[in-house]
Design a protein around this nucleic acid. Sequence first.
DNA 1: TTTATTATTTAGATTTGTCTAAATAATATT
DNA 2: AATATTATTTAGACAAATCTAAATAATAAA
Lengths: 219, 219
Amino acid sequence: MNLSIAEENHIKSIYKLQEGDAVVTTNALAYELDTKPASVTDMAKKLKEKKLIEYEKYKGITLSADGRKAALQIVRRHRLWECFLVDKLSFSWEEVHELAEELEHVRSEKLTNRLSEFLGNPVIDPHGDPIPDANGKLAKPRPQTSLDQANAKRLVVTAVSDQSTALLAFLNAKGIKLGTQLEIVAHYEYDNSIEIKVKGQPAITISEQVAKNIMVRPV
Amino acid sequence: MNLSIAEENHIKSIYKLQEGDAVVTTNALAYELDTKPASVTDMAKKLKEKKLIEYEKYKGITLSADGRKAALQIVRRHRLWECFLVDKLSFSWEEVHELAEELEHVRSEKLTNRLSEFLGNPVIDPHGDPIPDANGKLAKPRPQTSLDQANAKRLVVTAVSDQSTALLAFLNAKGIKLGTQLEIVAHYEYDNSIEIKVKGQPAITISEQVAKNIMVRPV
DNA sequence: TTTATTATTTAGATTTGTCTAAATAATATT
DNA sequence: AATATTATTTAGACAAATCTAAATAATAAA
Ligand SMILES: [Mn+2]
Ligand SMILES: [Mn+2]
Ligand SMILES: [Mn+2]
Ligand SMILES: [Mn+2]
């Protein structure tokens, strides 16, 4: 199946929004892809025709088995290129998404697998997201929760779930990256903000929105 | 100036066919790009509009100063990616052109320059072609001639001018690559074939067509 | 259960890049 | 110079991907 760049971007976004097995709505997909709902409907028809999604008018979208397989290949390429950019070309984690968004569309299994090998077959990308292997299999997800729901006091950052430049730049400014150890000092019920302390730095208070997007596990 | 992939491919092919300052014909460009002359005419109008080429009906095409600058950037990216694929991912020289044809369209100066640095700022690509620097400047071309016109007896291969998979595979089979030293044993006037000897190998006879596409300099 | 609001789809248009077939211009041949 | 051949352009069409505005369906509120 030979997919266009537009088709690949749609498939990938459906995969992202699906999170398990929820149906993806036309509006959500349009927002994610920065297009209009009418355009999504058009594309949905085409992807259904190609049997990459299940779709009935007004009923939302889910990936078919073939669609999921395609999505995982695109995600694999995206995350491998992100690793390349960070590990080999010294880009920082907030710069790589945009470039990987283009590089992911070079469809060559040989290139993808050689790149993976060159990088030492990494299993997580610079944002803590798992990288599917050549067969599209994801490593078993390590147990992690968002910072706002963490029970333990001493935590280590495992991923960020919002990868906007804005959040990543904020985390840079606060000295927080993958692997950073932090300690929850207080939880303010008023606005659900959280006071945390990063090793060797003064304590800071972060908003609920930030806390929701930092993934952690007990140290 | 933001160019589409199609526009970039046209600009690059015009650059390739121009060789100095010759005008490029509609038919030649269509053949090079594997499209139809009518399509080239359409694109020529658009590129003229964007001031990237000089073009008058029935008079052929040449790059403008801006067009040449754009072409050199694309060529730079193409050749750097070829280096990456060969040097870092162990591809062989006949595999990389097709992939670079896609990778070259990721337009990021930062990426390009980081990649160049990562590769040690190479000045020639896997086919012996020069790589423009960040300012679009080409290294002074090393003196070289095609093998069929070489005077000296002992030669070293510096480039291949036809980069079709067919020729490169032929050269692989004969153990000829960049830097290979060879000696001209005989020249047969009947069909202009040439007998050559590669160090440590039995002599072989190659056709004029092959000889024309192997670039050499005296050892 | 009507009515209002929101979500989604349809209809029709636009842009980009391409094509075929026909017309015209340039060049080569008699 | 007239004619034949080749090269190029034009006219009109098409597919892909998108859009806006209008129509319709689903859902929420009254
Ligand atoms: Mn993309
Ligand atoms: Mn990522
Ligand atoms: Mn290309
Ligand atoms: Mn090359």
